[in-house]
């Protein structure tokens, strides 16, 4: 395995460990006694003690940490205090909404951004470029939840094309599910597409100023051929980086959008966890989100190796 990958793998593991310690400290150490925190001030010592036991919050901190991490590694995320069910089951159920939503939004955003970015780079400084850049300037400035509300007002309340909220589940087939996720996905995708378009454009323009594009032109390639054969792949690295960041941003950014559309995803789960002071749920779901971000970034670094031969050693 190339040394580059080994070192990335090492930092992946280290990041996961440090992240889990940080989360554990913030959730279980800083508030003092989590059980008291969860029960509120009016709880009797006995009930707090009982909760502490049932949640496994007894014993010295290092042991509790190891217990939590060990459980996570074997798929045991603890038991929700409010729902009285294993957190792992809750998460799996909610992922069926959050994951498709994220992927849907990323697909939309990429489909929009790649051609727009290429067009803008090719027509740099001309009308099409100005139009695209103006649109992205606006897209970056629009908060996605507000955009979501506008979509609801227009497409659900006025035109009645799509549902205003809620999620029918995947039981009724693919189409009803997709219908329910369409407005949220569009709301998530457009601001992301604006960012991605700008990155795509500047990465391409940067690549086009490189010496090897001039070499390609000297061989007889037209400007378009030079871009397609030599520019795209070189521009891919920054684009991949942003795609990785966007995946994690969408997973987390969906938290707000899920609230606009009343979607039963991970975001709603975290929120309910916070309002009901269900620390076990918060701790585990936050750790999962962070782990997802770290792993996706690692996957992006793996993809660099596929794209760039200089990293293959």
């Amino acid at each position: 395995m190339p040394r580059y990958l080994l070192s990335r793998l090492g930092s992946l593991v280290l990041s996961l460990v440090v992240a889990s310690v940080v989360i554990f400290v913030v959730v279980q150490v800083i508030p003092g006694d989590p059980a008291t925190f969860m029960m509120g001030l009016n709880a009797t010592p006995d009930t707090v003690e009982a909760l502490r036991h049932s949640l496994g919050l007894t014993g010295p901190l290092p042991l509790r940490y190891l217990h939590w991490v060990g459980g996570m590694l074997t798929g045991d995320l603890g038991t929700s205090y409010t729902y009285r069910v294993p957190v792992a089951g809750l998460v799996l159920q909610r992922l069926q909404v959050s994951l498709p939503l994220t992927v849907y939004a990323m697909a939309l955003s990429s489909l929009l951004a790649f051609p727009a970015g290429m067009l803008a780079a090719a027509r740099r400084g001309r009308g099409a470029d100005l139009a695209v850049m103006g649109a992205t300037q606006l897209g970056i400035a629009v908060p996605n939840f507000w955009f979501a509300m506008l979509l609801v007002i227009v497409f659900a309340l006025r035109l009645h094309w799509l549902p205003a909220g809620g999620f029918p589940g995947w039981g009724g087939g693919l189409w009803p599910g997709l219908r329910g996720l369409t407005l949220p996905a569009v709301a998530l995708a457009l601001p992301q597409a604006a960012i991605l378009t700008r990155v795509m454009r500047s990465a391409l323009i940067e690549t086009l100023s490189q010496d090897f594009i001039r070499t390609a032109r000297a061989k007889g390639l037209s400007q378009g051929q030079a871009v397609r054969r030599h520019g795209l792949r070189n521009a891919l690295i920054p684009v991949l980086t942003i795609l990785g960041l966007q995946f994690s941003f969408l997973l987390a950014g969906a938290i707000i959008i899920e609230n606009v559309f009343y979607l039963p995803g991970l975001g709603r789960l975290i929120f309910q966890g916070i309002t009901q002071r269900d620390l076990i749920v918060v701790q585990s779901v936050v750790m999962l989100l962070v782990a997802a971000v770290i792993v996706v970034n690692f996957a992006v670094e793996l993809a660099y190796v596929l794209v760039d031969p200089r990293l293959r050693r």
């Binding site: 992240a19 913030v26 987390a252 938290i255 989100l289 770290i294």
Partner: peptide, 10 residues
């Protein structure tokens, strides 16, 4: 690795 929203939530 902690999206800002997750930091806020924590």
């Amino acid at each position: 690795a902690f999206p800002s929203l997750v930091i806020a939530i924590l």
